[in-house]
Computed example of a mutant assay.
Amino acid sequence: MTQLIQPNTRTSAQGKTIRAAIYTRISFDDTKREEGVERQEHDCRKWAAANGWNVVAHYSDNSISASKFDVERPQYDLLCAAVLTGEVNAVIVWDVDRLTRQQGQLEWWLDMARRGRVTLACLCSIRDCGFSHVKVSGLVMGACRPLLQGLV
């Protein structure tokens, strides 16, 4: 079974040194001050430090929707490329809906995790704050449940 997180270690389940990226996103920032993504980054960095994960990159898409198919997320695309090239092998997000709200994208991340290409840490799942606010909660929990068993 693939594990979604591998806490308190500097190595992934595959024995590789963790090279983590933090991904932050907020759909609408009317102030343009990036306070929401900064709070997410702070929480993710705090979690990484507490769990011995080396953060090598931070990608942030401020005031960009993840649910609209016709909206480009340049930093998200760079994150995906970094995972494919092996530049990063772990991704930390505040909540899974910060990473994606599209089924195909979620399936891609879960496939990368199953293949051992990336280890995913989702802080809300770790803290058990639930997914009731996520529009696609049924999809997310259905897809993630096998990976979260025993972790939350």
Rank of each mutant, 00 (worst) to 15 (best):
D70F: 10
Y76L: 13
V71M: 06
Q103H: 15
Q103M: 14
L120A: 02
C80W: 10
S60H: 09
V91K: 08
A113D: 04
R114W: 01
Q75Y: 00
R117Q: 11
S60M: 13
V91S: 06
N62C: 09
L120T: 00
R73A: 01
R98T: 09
M112G: 00
L123P: 00
A113W: 00
G86Q: 05
S67N: 06
S67E: 11
G104M: 11
L106W: 01
S60Y: 10
C80R: 15
L120Q: 03
D97N: 15
L110S: 02
E72A: 15
P74D: 10
L123V: 02
G86F: 07
L110V: 11
A81G: 03
L120V: 02
C122F: 11
A121E: 00
W109F: 10
Y76T: 02
T119E: 13
L120K: 02
L79D: 05
I64E: 08
L99Q: 11
L123K: 01
W109A: 05
P74V: 07
V96F: 14
S63K: 08
N89V: 06
P74A: 13
A90I: 03
E72D: 14
E72S: 12
I126K: 02
R73I: 03
R115E: 13
R117E: 11
Y76V: 02
C129T: 15
R117H: 06
M112L: 08
L120F: 00
V83Q: 04
I92T: 06
A81D: 06
A121D: 09
D128C: 13
A66T: 14
N62W: 10
L84N: 13
T85V: 06
M112D: 03
Q102C: 01
L78D: 11
K68E: 15
R115M: 08
L106P: 00
R98D: 05
R117V: 10
D97M: 08
N89R: 09
I126E: 04
R127E: 11
D95G: 15
E87F: 06
D97W: 03
V91W: 08
R115V: 01
I126A: 04
R117D: 12
W109P: 03
F69E: 15
D95V: 08
S60D: 07
W94R: 11
A113N: 12
S67Y: 11
D95T: 15
